[in-house]
Design a binder for these strands. Structure first.
Lengths: 335, 335
DNA sequence: ATGAAAGCGCTAACAA
DNA sequence: TTGTTAGCGCTTTCAT
């Protein structure tokens, strides 16, 4: 067992309460005693036992983050930023991956909830009532789910999508395809805001899906894009976009000469693809900071003024978008 | 505060020790009492307070995993597999990202070590003595670091590299470039085993680097590959390989017709690239399982028979490797 | 300014 | 088979 407060007390020739005070509320102890205690603590390599402290205080100084799938390259930067932010405020961040399965998510929450002071639930699969219940029992911040009365950070793609529409319009595109990869996840369909933005810019939009947000979805979608005679594709996310790029190449269509492609998320995939992928970026640091700050606030009993915090997005133009081809690939094929 | 063992005891009309026993060592209590206790516990939604249990038991039922950078797509599957494995044995896995900075790593270890029963340190940046010290104080499993006497899982690229050499040889390649992206990380240079394997197969090998393991390293390396007249590249990892692919395309060289490219790690990048990337795979589940099992063993006082456990690798042939071009790209350029 | 002691929730002696 | 109780390490009254 490690060194305890009692041993420090003995070494410094004071009582345990003095040690506790010297370390936690230094103003309450005489300067020389304080120094003596601190020296002893350093010398012995004392560190408070978090379990004892938690038991006494009823707080763990830890936060939990539940995400659907850490292998989705969208999440690691988020986690990293949250961990950073939490650490700066003296909290440890505990991540858990729910694998997008409701049962696993429940199990994980059960296992983790008692070990943390609050939870960030990202795109939870749980039904609304369950989330409401949970939020009534402990501090909870939802991301990309909406439950009335529960604190939420809402990642809005509106700006990024509008910019994408404008970008494609400026390049002369007229007919686009949106590859929906939302499956049947709650509260997250991107379809509506995309339709609105494209309508507003007078761009033709064909939606296909919903499918699962996988590479193969993009592969599947690519020939449909050509068949529809569209010159641009907006994919559900970067991974799907990569599938589109892959299959367009296999079909002999070049990007962006024949077809322009836009992703969503600005993951590592976007920057390493060839050509590099035009995509819509949500500032991971901003979401992370807001969610963590809100959660720590809740853990300290501070309810935010607004239950919903918005985080914006923007287009990152890269190499997969360009002028619309005069003849669509399909028609050119006929020639 | 949540429901305690005392409340369950009262509800069931028994003492707290009976509740504890009914839940932890059911054989020690009368069947009907046991049932009564369990019912009461369920009804009240009782879950033991982990802080109290930890304090009492001296164990946390948590494990820590320290990795250099979670945004490296190599790690998420590892984490996921470890979390899975740990969960199955009743442990919570706590990941922390050290950002490849020794100071951060130390700080993180300080923050986390008291909250867990043991640590998996992946490619730690700490000096050997520090690791030895730490391992003397608590259960530690090293991955990709070697410190005498400390339990270690060693990921061996030997098999995968040998298969890559054989694969390239069979395709008629004669001159290859290895892009070293190891920087100055301890114990992890891939150079030696690569040289040995290529020598053994009579393949010419030019090493460039060491650089940092980044996309830009691959971009930088691509023209050098052509300048050396090589027809194949083995990159430090998939990310570097992606850089090579990107820049080869920019230089007008096609893959695999002009140059074959092999990565290492078999990350998501490899499967989504165009063409898909031939790479060397280390089974993430195997490393994860071994490391976690070893660590849990140590936490229970079981020293492994062998301090070092080996995990192998194998080549995953995909679309970036093919027959060597008769004329190298550089020479063809002269024509 | 400092010390003594209670008590957070739990498990495991020890008693009965 | 069950109950009583000590004690894990810590913070915080309450005294002094």
């Amino acid at each position: 067992m490690a060194v305890t407060i009692g041993e420090v007390a003995k070494a410094a020739g004071v009582s345990v309460s003095t040690v506790s005070r010297a370390l936690n509320t230094p103003d309450l102890v005489n300067a020389v005693t304080r120094q003596r205690v601190k020296d002893a603590a350093d010398r012995l390599g004392y560190a408070p036992n978090p379990a004892a402290r938690s038991l006494r205080e009823g707080r763990t100084e830890s936060l939990g983050l539940l995400i659907p799938d850490i292998t989705n390259p969208f999440f690691p930067p988020i986690f990293k930023a949250m961990q950073e932010r939490a650490k700066r405020q003296g909290y440890t961040l505990l991540v858990a991956d729910s694998d997008e399965r409701e049962a696993d998510e429940l199990e994980t929450i059960a296992a983790v909830s008692k070990k943390v002071d609050g939870l960030v639930l990202w795109a939870s699969m749980l039904p609304e009532e369950r989330l409401a219940e949970l939020a009534a029992r402990m501090p909870v911040v939802l991301v990309n789910r909406h439950v009335p009365g529960v604190v939420e950070v809402h990642v809005s793609l509106t700006d990024g999508i509008a910019q994408a529409a404008e970008h494609l319009k400026a390049y002369g595109h007229q007919q686009c395809v949106f590859v929906d990869g939302n499956g049947n996840r709650p509260d997250q369909s991107r379809s509506k805001s995309i339709r609105e933005a494209f309508d507003a810019h007078g761009l033709g939009l064909i939606e296909i899906g919903p499918y699962e947000p996988r590479f193969e979805t993009g592969v599947h979608a690519a020939p449909l894009v050509l068949a529809h005679g569209a010159t641009a594709v907006l994919a559900h996310n970067d991974l799907v976009a990569m599938g589109v790029l892959h299959q367009l190449a296999a079909l002999g269509a070049s990007v962006p000469a024949d077809v322009s492609v836009v992703g969503i998320d600005d993951t590592l995939l976007a920057s390493v693809s060839t050509p590099s992928l035009t995509t819509i970026r949500i500032a991971p640091d901003e979401v992370a900071t807001k969610a963590i700050d809100l959660l720590i606030g809740l853990a300290h009993g501070r309810q935010p003024a607004q239950p919903v915090t918005e985080v914006g997005s923007r287009l990152i133009p890269r190499g997969t978008t360009g002028p619309a081809s005069r003849a669509t690939f399909a028609r050119r094929d006929d020639a």
